[in-house]
């Protein structure tokens, strides 16, 4: 077994295999993970974080691949986290985003990691944030996190990024659909991908109109960019807008605020998960089961049962 010190040393020397191993131990919450994250934390804070989200089939991976190539043209290092859902039935997952990222396959300036959601309630956003921290600490200048824009926790991940790109396609219904899914609310930049398809202009106009209705938020109104990611069209424009948003946030102090918000959320999440872990130890779980029996037997109410457990913790 490799020692943590050794692994961290290799990591700081720029060994990609070590980076990969550290991501694994963080993702799996292996016993050394809090220690590792603490030791890496001072190295974080340099990477700009971009979230890319949208409905399935919107061409997100292709778009991310294009963005990565654009970033690489400036000789910056990029990390990509591609999140796909786990099966709720088997816990397994098929992670296929690399299929569309062939062009960046062996570029030493790019590191792509696929992550399954693992059905964790809320824990996913935390894990994805941790992995982004690890990539940040490794020295990637930009970290792009790609998620499917369904479900709250995927949206949380996207929102934790400094710039959130929402990708929609002409046939994904209309902008209203995306609005309903809460996507428009979190968008800093909107990409209408596969813009060579019928209805692209219409959806671009609709989106624009909807955004105008929403009005500026913190002095920024999200631009709508048409892209054809499979041909590389519009990627440069998209990147320019992301860059513009970055500059805007930096200058307006919003970036600092955003980071502060992220730190607060992280601290809270850690506290909450620790409380959860501490509360539900072996003793309290067995107590829970016997109390439930009693409730079922009509001897107590659920509220009384919980009071019992809480007193157990307080009294410890």
């Amino acid at each position: 077994m490799v020692s943590t010190d050794d692994l961290l040393k290799r990591f700081t020397d720029g060994d990609r295999t070590a980076l990969s191993k550290i991501i694994t131990l963080v993702e799996n919450h292996e016993s050394s993970f809090p220690d590792v994250l603490d030791r890496l934390y001072p190295r974080t804070g340099k990477a700009y974080r971009i979230g890319v989200t949208g409905p399935p089939g919107a061409g997100k991976s292709t778009l991310v691949s294009g963005l990565v190539q654009r970033v690489r043209a400036d000789d910056k290092l990029v990390g990509v986290i591609a999140v796909d859902p786990s099966s709720p039935f088997t816990g397994g997952a098929l992670l296929g985003d690399r299929i569309r990222m062939q062009d960046i396959g062996i570029d030493p300036g790019v590191f792509v990691r696929s992550m399954a959601t693992r059905g964790s309630l809320g824990g996913l956003a935390e894990a994805a944030g941790d992995v982004a921290d690890v990539m940040d600490a490794f020295g990637q200048d930009i970290v792009i996190t790609e998620t499917v824009g369904v479900g709250q926790c995927e949206l949380d991940i996207a929102e934790a990024c400094y710039t959130t790109v929402v990708v929609i396609v002409p046939e994904s219904g209309d902008a209203i659909q995306a609005m309903k899914a809460g996507l428009m609310e979190i968008a800093d930049v909107i990409a209408i991908n596969k813009a060579d398809r019928e209805g692209a202009d219409r959806i671009a106009r609709q989106t624009q109109a909807m955004l105008e209705l929403r009005g500026e938020r913190n002095g920024w109104s999200p631009p709508v960019i048409c892209t054809i990611a499979s041909q590389g069209d519009g990627i440069s424009d998209l990147f320019d807008q992301i860059e513009k948003h970055r500059v805007f946030q930096t200058e307006s102090g919003l970036l600092k605020k955003h980071r502060r918000g992220n730190v607060e959320a992280t601290v809270k999440a850690i506290v909450e998960s620790e409380i959860h872990r501490k509360v539900w130890g072996e003793r309290s779980l067995s107590k829970l089961h016997s109390l439930v029996d009693e409730v079922m037997g009509g001897k107590r109410t659920p509220r009384q049962a919980s009071a019992e457990i809480l007193s157990m913790i307080d009294g410890r």
């Binding site: 990969s20 397994g92 690399r98 062996i106 990691r113 696929s114």
Partner: peptide, 29 residues
């Protein structure tokens, strides 16, 4: 089948060079 057996499967797609396969294996650990 591996997915249905509860594993996380990263699929590379077609026409990979050995270098691409190895890079993917390392990045995905």
């Amino acid at each position: 089948a591996l997915r249905d057996a509860g594993m996380e499967v990263v699929y590379t797609g077609l026409h990979q060079t050995p270098e691409m396969v190895v890079e993917a294996a390392i990045q995905e650990d």
